[in-house]
């Protein structure tokens, strides 16, 4: 069985990659992907932490599943966010013909 620490380590690395990517990349689609990566890192952390917290109920050890249910919610929300995000990107692309965030600079200061 994979130790919990490894799951959490992977989730931290994914979160960092996502954060650094979201802060440095210039392509809008890649930005959305980086945000997805951050959300998935959090989901992975939830699943990993869920293993840490077994609950004793009626003699047998069962898991409370809070963390795993949370992940289902996150998946739904992330999908909705990406759907809306791509819609916004398309309406921008129709007006601007560009996928670079540096071209989106009408509003400043």
């Amino acid at each position: 069985m994979i130790p919990v620490e490894h799951v959490l380590g992977l989730s931290a690395i994914l979160f960092l990659i996502g954060t650094v990517g979201a802060l440095t990349r210039r392509n809008i689609i890649v930005l959305l992907m980086c945000i997805e990566l951050m959300l998935n890192a959090a989901s992975l952390a939830f699943v990993g932490f869920n293993r840490l917290w077994p609950v004793k109920e009626a003699g047998a050890t069962v898991s409370a599943l809070n963390g795993q249910v949370f992940v289902l919610m996150v998946i739904v929300v992330a999908t909705a966010e990406v759907a809306v995000g791509l819609g916004i990107v398309i309406s921008l692309f129709r007006n601007r013909d560009s996928m670079n965030v540096e071209d989106v600079s009408l509003l400043k200061w």
């Binding site: 809008i28 966010e81 916004i88 921008l92 965030v101 989106v104 509003l107």
Partner: peptide, 21 residues
């Protein structure tokens, strides 16, 4: 309006990912 939505989406998505972590 496109730009406003895009900026809100990227910043808001980033913030909710941080919140979730």
């Amino acid at each position: 309006s496109n730009e406003s939505a895009l900026k809100y989406l990227i910043v808001g998505g980033f913030a909710s990912a941080i919140l979730l972590y």
